[in-house]
Amino acid sequence: MTQVVDDTTEPQAPLCGVLAIQGDVREHVQALSRRGIATRAVRRPEHLEGLDGIVLPGGESTTMLKMLAFQGLWDPLGDLLRSGRPVFATCAGLILCADDVQSPAQQSYGVLDVSVTRNAWGRQIRSGTFELRTHGAAGLPDPMSGVFIRAPGIVAVGPACEVLATREGQPVLVRQGAVLGASFHPELEDDHPVVDLFVASLRASVGERTVADTTS
């Protein structure tokens, strides 16, 4: 029997890390798995090897900050966030990625040119599902929904950063290069278009690198 060599083999499924120190890690893993993305829980620096992108989930940013240092992840994770590979940061993840954090002030990576105020959308009693406007930015539906849980507010957006969605006129979804940051939790909804947007950027990024590898 002749062995058929398939030259048009699809690139392998992208491998996306999910920072797994604390928070809604499982919900992000499930949202990606449902869309055919392979995932890896990231707890130690060696878990960052070979990732095509990374998710910084929701949770408590103060806890995550302390544990990123203890796990030896602060610097190597920063390298990945600045590498141009797709990053999806929700709620606490957005706080970690911001340029400036208030209420209270705390350390952050500065890969999104935004100022955020923690818990600006209110305590848990004000949590819920709200209508967002996108005006079709990045092909997102308008309106779309967003689940806000003790959510951070984006209070200033620098020129490098693009606002993709607003709630009550305030920015809640921003993009800068390959970094996508949301005040809300698309991973808590079954088929949220913002997760699709991240998955598309992940696939495109892997595709581009595969082409670059073959041509070099």
Binding site: G23, D24, E27, S127, G128, V147, I149, E189
Partner: peptide, 11 residues
């Protein structure tokens, strides 16, 4: 989403 979702963030 809002009640159980909050508790998921504490895991």
């Amino acid at each position: 989403r809002s009640k159980i979702g909050f508790c998921e963030q504490l895991k």
